[in-house]
């Protein structure tokens, strides 16, 4: 291949310099490059095809069958009909909707924290680090921690008892248990999300704030009319990841905190997929539910992309 840098036309050198990025320009060695490139991608591609794409297709196949995992009997859309008309699934979906309360809560806290951190008060980097701590912990650790804190002899009940109140059974009532899990979600989630929002705030042109200050806009006015509108793209992103999270990532919390109970009162869609996959003889309906969950997530993501496009244009 010819040496690229040996023939710069002095005047336009800066513009003509090959941009870093993109494949090399086509040449005599192109064929060899294609073969080497393909060979290098192949191992990763095979693993992903075999253990992600094939399983999804397999799940799709199972969802159209009655199956114990070994033999398959085609039943068409029966499993989907069963899932969509199952009152248990309806109830579980409603339970999942209750968990959505965590979304505005965690976003509210994150906005406050990010706006305060943005003021660069003393020690803001230290605070940022502390708030981020729960984010590296697993749902299992956070879940058991909160189960202990809200347990019958946990910290909360010790305080209640010390103040002369009745100890509260947080995990025998569905709604109270959900409230505890939501608290855990907010506690563990606000740090990362306020970092995201903070990076959005940092990218606002400071001149905008100065102009507004010159116009006599107070702090609150600036927050409402300048700061928040300027980070609406990040806000949209945070909103969507939270919604996705409530439908796909509560498994760990539910598994260690309530096991879906009492009854099915805290069972979420992702936990129900797990239960259906391993508790019943027929795997078909569970697979159908998993496929529906996947479709729902895909839909939300497409929606997210649409929303982002729109806000990028204006």
């Amino acid at each position: 291949m010819t040496s690229v840098s040996s023939t710069p036309l002095v005047a336009g050198a800066a513009e003509a310099a090959p941009a870093a990025g993109g494949p090399r320009k086509p040449g005599a060695l192109n064929r060899r490059g294609r073969i080497i490139g393909l060979a290098a991608v192949l191992p990763a591609l095979v693993v992903v095809l075999g253990f992600m794409i094939y399983p999804v297709l397999f799940a799709l196949f199972i969802s159209f069958n009655n199956s114990n995992g070994r033999s398959f009997k085609w039943v068409g859309l029966d499993n989907y009909v069963r899932i969509l008309t199952d009152p248990l699934v309806h109830g579980v979906f409603l339970t999942n909707l209750k968990f959505l309360i965590s979304v505005p809560l965690v976003i509210f806290v994150s906005i406050i924290v990010s706006v305060l951190l943005f003021e660069r008060v003393r020690g803001w980097k230290f605070f940022r680090f502390i708030y981020f701590l729960p984010n590296v912990l697993s749902a299992v650790v956070i879940g058991i921690m909160f189960k202990q804190i809200f347990g019958y002899y946990g910290v909360v009940n010790e305080i209640v008892a010390a103040l002369g109140g009745e100890r509260i059974q947080f995990f025998t009532t569905g709604n109270l248990a959900i409230a505890v899990i939501i608290t855990a979600l907010v506690w563990s989630g606000f740090g990362y999300q306020s970092l995201l929002l903070l990076s959005g705030l940092t990218s606002i042109d400071p001149a905008v704030f100065e102009a507004a200050a010159l116009d006599g806009a107070g702090w609150w006015k600036r927050l409402w009319y300048i700061t928040l509108p300027n980070i609406r793209r990040v806000l949209g992103f945070v909103f969507i990841i939270n919604v996705l999270y409530t439908f796909t990532s509560l498994f760990g919390f539910i598994y260690v905190m309530t096991a879906g109970g009492p009854g099915y009162d805290t069972t979420t869609v992702d936990y129900l997929v797990f239960l259906k996959a391993f508790d019943t003889g027929n795997k078909g309906p569970g697979a159908a539910l998993a496929v529906l969950l996947f479709l729902f997530i895909g839909l939300l993501t497409v929606l997210q992309n649409k929303v982002f496009r729109v806000s990028e244009e204006d």
Partner: peptide, 30 residues
């Protein structure tokens, strides 16, 4: 850095499988 045939398609499929939640995979993988 290499002219991998179908690289756009490969990249796109890698990005889209990131969306697959593990709940969908667990039964077939088991």
């Amino acid at each position: 850095k290499y002219p991998v045939p179908g690289s756009k398609f490969i990249t796109a499929s890698f990005v889209s499988v990131m969306l697959i939640p593990s709940q969908v995979l667990i039964l077939p993988i088991y």
